[in-house]
Design a protein around this nucleic acid. Structure first.
Lengths: 182, 182
DNA sequence: CAGTATCCTGTCCGATACTG
DNA sequence: CAGTATCGGACAGGATACTG
C-alpha cells in the first residue's frame, strides 16, 4: 500500500503536505521564487535527474502550485510559473528559512533576509494581519472550524488546554512565538 | 544511491527539510504541539504503524527537535517533549496551516486560528520583528550571508532582481506577502 | 534546450506478530 | 502501555541514453 494519502484528512497541515511533501517539491518551489521558470533553470541549480524534474514539475502543476505555460510556438516550449496558490506558499518557505538559519547554520547563515532600508537582518515572525498582534497562545487559539468533524473537535479542545498555557509538569518550558508554550 | 542528502548544502531551507522532510515528521510535530508526549498519544491520533512511529520519533530526537525524557523508573518509561529547536518550528506549521486553509479546504476550514479576545479568525502574516513592517520584496531581500559560497552569492544576486520586482514578461502577476512578486 | 524512455535501487512505509 | 522484530511492497529518486 505504501504511503497513506492524507488527502481525505481534515487537517490543513496534512493537506498542505500532500502537495509539497516530496523531497524535491519545496526545493522546486524555492527555485521558482528565485526566478526559475524553465526546465533548465530548475535543473542546473538543483542537480536533479531530468526524469525526476519532469515528474515533480508535473505534480506541482497538477496540484495547482505551478502553471505550465507555452512561451514558444515552434519549437513548442513551456515554462513553469507560480500560480497564486504557489505564491501563497512563500511564507512557509520563509518560516523554514528562518528556522534553518536559527538552528542549522553553526557557521553562520548563507542566506539572510535583510531590510534594504536599514540594512539590518530581518527576524521574521507571525502576526495577526488584522490586529498586528504577534501570535501567541495566550491570545490566540486553534479552534474547530465549520468543516470540522467530531474527532477533530475533541482533539482541538484538548490541544487548546495544552497550548493555552497551563503549567503541567512543573517544568517552565521555553518561549514559542511570542513566548508562551507550556 | 537514492535520496541525496542535503546536509552539505548551503541553503537553510534544504537543511530544514533534512530534519522534517519525511512524511510523518511534520505530523508528529503537529501532534507534539497538540500536547502529545507519549508513544501512545502520537499513535492513537495518527494511525501510524508502531515501528514507523519509533523510527520517526527516534529521528526527531536525533535531529534535536524532541527530547526523550524518562518519566518513570520502573517500568522505565519515556516521553517525547519539544526542545527549543522543536518549538521554534511552530511558525512553519502555522504557515502551512494557513496555506492549507486558504487553498485546500473548499468546504471551509476544519481548524482555524482565532483571536480569543475578538473572536475573529486570524490571518497570520510574516513581519519583521524589529520594525513591525510586513515582509515584502520592495523593502526586504534575500541576500548572501557570511557563510555563503560563491555559487550561492551569484544565485541570490539573480534572485534579487527577480524578487525585487522588475516587470519581466509584461505580465502583472499577483500579490505575495505584502503584495509584490513580479 | 527541453524534455522522454528505461531500468534499477533504496527506503519509506504498512501489516503483523510478539514482549515486559 | 511502550515499544521491538520481521517481512514485503510501492514508489521516490538516481543513472543513463536518446530525441526534436
Amino acid at each position: 500500500m505504501q504511503r497513506k494519502t492524507f488527502r481525505n484528512m481534515q487537517c490543513p497541515i496534512a493537506r498542505g503536505l500532500e502537495r509539497v511533501g516530496e523531497w524535491w517539491s519545496m526545493l522546486l518551489m524555492r527555485e521558482a521564487f528565485y526566478g526559475a521558470r524553465r526546465f533548465d533553470d530548475f535543473q542546473k541549480n538543483l542537480d536533479i535527474a531530468p526524469n525526476m524534474l519532469t515528474r515533480r514539475l508535473t505534480a506541482l502543476v497538477e496540484e495547482g502550485l505551478l502553471e505550465r505555460r507555452q512561451y514558444s510556438e515552434k519549437p513548442p516550449r513551456y515554462e513553469y510559473v507560480l500560480t497564486q496558490c504557489g505564491r501563497d506558499f512563500l511564507p512557509v518557505l520563509l518560516a523554514m528559512l528562518a528556522w534553518g538559519n536559527k538552528h542549522f547554520a553553526p557557521e553562520g547563515p548563507s542566506v539572510e533576509l535583510r531590510d534594504k532600508e536599514t540594512g539590518k537582518v530581518v527576524d521574521p515572525v507571525l502576526v495577526d494581519a488584522g490586529t498586528g498582534e504577534r501570535l501567541n497562545f495566550k491570545r490566540h487559539a486553534l479552534v474547530a472550524g465549520p468543516a470540522a468533524a467530531d474527532g477533530m473537535r475533541r482533539r482541538l479542545a484538548s490541544a487548546a488546554s495544552f497550548l493555552g498555557g497551563a503549567e503541567q509538569t512543573g517544568e517552565a518550558g521555553g518561549a514559542v512565538l511570542a513566548g508562551d508554550l507550556p
